[in-house]
Simulated scan of single mutants.
Amino acid sequence: MASIFRPFTSPFRNTYRYLQRQAHESPVIFYSCVLGAIGPVMLVTVPPIRRYYGWRKPEEIPTTYPLPKRARRPVQGYEDE
């Protein structure tokens, strides 16, 4: 019975062994790949978790300076004629 499932488990077992060997022989590359794989997962999971804990988007930063509600006087002085 175990021989029926052997072709299906062998690729997973070999992949696990390969990753284990890479983690031992070149840990920098291995963990770089692990962190790179976690990024897209975080893109999907982090925003709902933040909303669950009550995080709200901050107010937008103004891009223009508000003009005063009065008559504007023309500038005089320093090279203005």
Rank of each mutant, 00 (worst) to 15 (best):
P74H: 06
P58A: 13
L35R: 08
Y78T: 10
E25S: 07
Y52V: 00
R50H: 06
C33I: 06
Q76L: 12
E25F: 03
P62N: 11
V28E: 00
R70T: 10
L43Y: 15
P47S: 12
A2R: 09
P74R: 08
Q22V: 08
M42L: 15
T15G: 04
R21D: 06
R51Q: 14
I29D: 07
L67E: 13
T9S: 05
S32Y: 04
I4W: 01
F8H: 10
R70Q: 12
D80R: 10
K57H: 13
G36M: 00
S32H: 00
G36H: 01
Y52P: 00
A71S: 10
V34L: 14
Y65W: 11
M1H: 13
G39Y: 00
L43K: 15
Y18D: 01
S3P: 00
Y16D: 02
G39F: 04
F5S: 07
T9A: 03
Y31S: 11
T63A: 13
E60P: 01
R17K: 12
A23Q: 02
E79L: 10
V75L: 14
R70K: 13
R72W: 13
P40S: 12
S26K: 12
V34A: 07
P62D: 08
T64G: 03
R73D: 09
L43F: 15
T15E: 01
E59M: 08
F30H: 06
F5D: 04
G54L: 04
P74W: 09
A2I: 06
A23I: 01
A37S: 14
V46H: 00
T63D: 02
I49P: 01
Q20C: 05
P48N: 02
S10P: 00
K57R: 14
F12V: 14
G77V: 03
T15P: 00
G77S: 08
E81K: 11
I4R: 13
R21P: 01
V75A: 11
Y31N: 12
T64E: 09
V41K: 10
R56N: 14
R17I: 06
Y78V: 10
I61C: 05
R56E: 14
V41F: 15
G54F: 01
A37V: 04
V28T: 02
E60L: 06
P62Y: 04
F5K: 10
E81C: 05
T64I: 07
V44A: 04
F8C: 11
K69F: 12
G54T: 05
N14V: 03
V44K: 15
W55F: 11
P58C: 07
P47L: 09
P74N: 05
Q20F: 05
R6K: 15
R21N: 09
A2D: 10
T64S: 11
R17T: 02
L43W: 11
R56I: 14
T9F: 05
F5T: 11
R21L: 05
G77L: 02
Y31P: 03
G77P: 02
Y78K: 09
K57I: 14
A2W: 07
A37T: 09
K69S: 15
I38D: 08
P7W: 01
E25Q: 06
R6N: 15
G36T: 03
R50A: 14
A2T: 01
Y65Q: 12
